[in-house]
């Protein structure tokens, strides 16, 4: 470092240190109030989320029984599980370090097993026989690797068993696959994350295995590429925060 660089560095250090006195504790006190007082609410919300499946199931079953007892056409009143959720809502997505207001639309998964809000300005949901895929509205140009989030239900395998099988399979394409992680956000379950290089277009797999509320699992697999991690990767994350399993 030249004398000039050192002089500039020392001067900035001196002046910014003087101006920062006392701020560290002041900010921490505010953070404690904002994050951890509110966080108690969040924790309640998370715990509640575990119960939401059965609560929704009970409400839906109750409504169905009540309506079918009253009228033969009771089932016509509940056209689908979608009726129980707002058709659209606005969310704030923090992508690439900046907040972005996005309108997301309610989508129902295969056989109404779950709901998810999809950013339909960028993505579409394609329902398949065995799984549903959320992908870009227009296919990306050929030079880009595939970008998609695929949701599959595996009804007869528990997450703790399934995640190990998937880990073994993924290691073939992603030798440096990270250890299985337990996560609570955006969904509660297991996370597998792998990347097969360090180039802009290296493939990234980001995969969650979560309970389906019974004896099975949901597998949510995101595929994108390294440069898209803070774009598509972050948007998948925010869409996934709205994922709810719906039991009949």
């Amino acid at each position: 470092m030249s004398d000039f660089d050192k002089r500039v560095k020392d001067e900035l250090h001196k002046r910014t240190t003087e101006e920062s006195n006392g701020l560290k504790d002041e900010i921490w006190n505010e953070l404690e109030k904002k994050l951890f007082n509110e966080e108690r609410g969040d924790v309640r919300k998370l715990k509640k989320k575990g119960r939401i499946i059965s609560v929704i199931g009970v409400i839906a079953a109750g409504l169905l029984i009540a309506l079918s007892l009253q009228t033969d056409t009771g089932s016509a009143f509940i056209k689908s599980v979608k009726d129980m959720f707002a058709p659209e809502k606005e969310i704030t997505q923090g992508t690439e370090g900046q907040d972005e207001e996005t309108e997301v639309h309610l989508n129902e998964g295969k056989d109404s097993e779950y709901i998810i809000y999809v950013d339909e300005t960028r993505y579409k949901m394609i329902k398949g026989e065995d799984s549903d895929v959320i992908t870009t509205i227009e296919p990306l140009p050929e030079k880009y690797p595939e970008v998609k989030m695929e949701i599959t239900q595996v009804a007869n395998e528990k997450p703790e068993d399934l995640v190990k099988k998937i880990e073994a399979e993924l290691k073939a394409d992603f030798p440096e696959l990270r250890e299985i992680e337990n996560v609570t956000k955006p969904v509660e379950g297991y996370l597998l994350h792998g990347i097969n290089g360090s180039e802009w277009d290296s493939n990234v797999v980001h995969l969650y295995v979560i309970s389906n509320g019974n004896e099975g699992s949901f597998v949510i697999r995101e595929d994108y590429f390294l440069e898209a991690a803070e774009g598509h990767g972050a948007r998948f994350h925010f869409m996934l925060e709205s994922f709810e399993i719906v039991e009949e």
Partner: peptide
Amino acid sequence: YRQISSYNSEL
């Protein structure tokens, strides 16, 4: 704190 899950730890 709130968005740490969206951080890509490869970067």
